[in-house]
Simulated assay, not measured.
Amino acid sequence: MSGRALVTGAGGFVGRHLVARLRADGWHVTGLTRADVDLADPVAGAAAVRAADPDVVFSLAAGRARATPAERAATVAVNTAPWLVDALPERCRAVVRLGSSTEYAAGPRPLDEDVPLRPRGFFGATKAAGSLLLQAAAAERGVRAAVLRAFQVYGPGDHPTRLVPVVLAAARTGATVPLPASVSRRDWVWVGDVVDACVRAALADDLPPGTVLNVGTGVQTGVEELVAAACRVTGRPIATAPGAHPGRDWDTADWVCDPRAARERLGWSPTVDLAEGLARTWAAEPR
């Protein structure tokens, strides 16, 4: 099954992979990037949605800037997009929102969809607010909405400042990787698996409206373990400097997904483990 798809955040890491997958599957895709429209402007955003006339919307646009009041206001506007549902045409049957695991409170056990929303950091707070607003607006409009809370997504084409690109670049150049002083573990999920979950959610007409599903592997890996895995994959030594990185708002010693609901409701399971994903990413990088 295919149709007309609108992808916001089409110029981002996951968005580029999703657009490629949809087009390969035969969808007519309208991709919106920052160069196309300012999604912090509700009038411009709504006009772009109406012009796309989509059967399905994939809401992937995400703002992160927060240094000034104006930047924070724009990030809230992009990450909540309260105008989105009202702009949808009658033909639209589903909105799939890519949320974030940072919407949750950290916990010592695998996180399922029932753990409290206690966002870690400003970004997590705006993503949580956007998820709640989408669910409420879609329910009033009668549009099926699904929120996929992705854990730590990685793969080819990620932003160069993120951990996997930094580690693999160090393998190539001999640079030293700065690491946080505290223990940091994450559930690393391959970008192609995240894209597959998005597509499955869009096509699952029997998925209850307002469904929230976690997208992760159920396996957490420490930063040092990831560096060691990258050494094995690349066959090159990677120097590290523990304590040289200030860490992130969402760093925690326990951050892992319980992916059972996605498996039960979408028939989705991760297909690429971390070692294979690092190998694929390394093979895709220019030498």
Score class of each variant (00 low, 15 high):
L134E: 06
L163R: 03
A106P: 12
A145L: 02
A145C: 08
P108W: 01
G124A: 09
V167E: 07
V115F: 01
T173M: 03
V153Y: 03
E113G: 12
E140P: 06
S184A: 15
Y104E: 02
A87W: 10
Y104L: 14
P110M: 05
N79K: 12
E140H: 15
T126S: 15
G107L: 06
V153H: 01
L133G: 15
V95G: 10
A136C: 06
G99E: 01
N79W: 12
V143A: 04
P165N: 03
G157D: 06
A128K: 09
F123R: 13
A150P: 05
Y154A: 11
G130R: 14
L168H: 03
S184L: 10
A106T: 14
T126K: 08
W188D: 08
V189G: 13
V189C: 00
P156I: 09
D187M: 12
A181P: 11
S131E: 15
L98K: 04
A128W: 05
A150Q: 03
E113Y: 12
T80N: 01
D158H: 12
H159E: 06
V147N: 14
S184K: 13
A87R: 11
V85K: 09
R144G: 02
L88C: 08
V96T: 03
P156S: 03
A150R: 01
V183P: 14
S100R: 01
P116Q: 03
Y104T: 04
D187Q: 11
V115C: 07
F123M: 10
R93P: 02
F123L: 13
F151S: 13
R172C: 10
G155A: 04
G155I: 09
D112V: 02
W190L: 12
R185N: 14
L148G: 08
T173E: 09
A150H: 01
L148M: 04
V191H: 13
V166C: 11
L84K: 04
T126V: 12
A171D: 11
Y154N: 03
A175T: 14
A146N: 07
L179V: 10
A181C: 13
R93T: 08
S100W: 07
S100Q: 05
S182R: 15
G99H: 01
T161D: 14
P178Y: 02
D114R: 15
P119T: 05
D86V: 02
G142V: 08
S184C: 15
A146C: 14
A175Y: 01
P110L: 09
P156T: 04
T161F: 11
D187L: 07
L132N: 12
A128V: 04
P89Y: 02
A145S: 15
G142H: 06
R109M: 13
A150E: 05
P165E: 08
P156D: 03
S184E: 07
L132F: 09
L179E: 08
G192P: 02
S131C: 05
A125R: 14
A169I: 02
Q152S: 14
G157I: 04
V153I: 07
A105L: 07
R120K: 14
A170E: 11
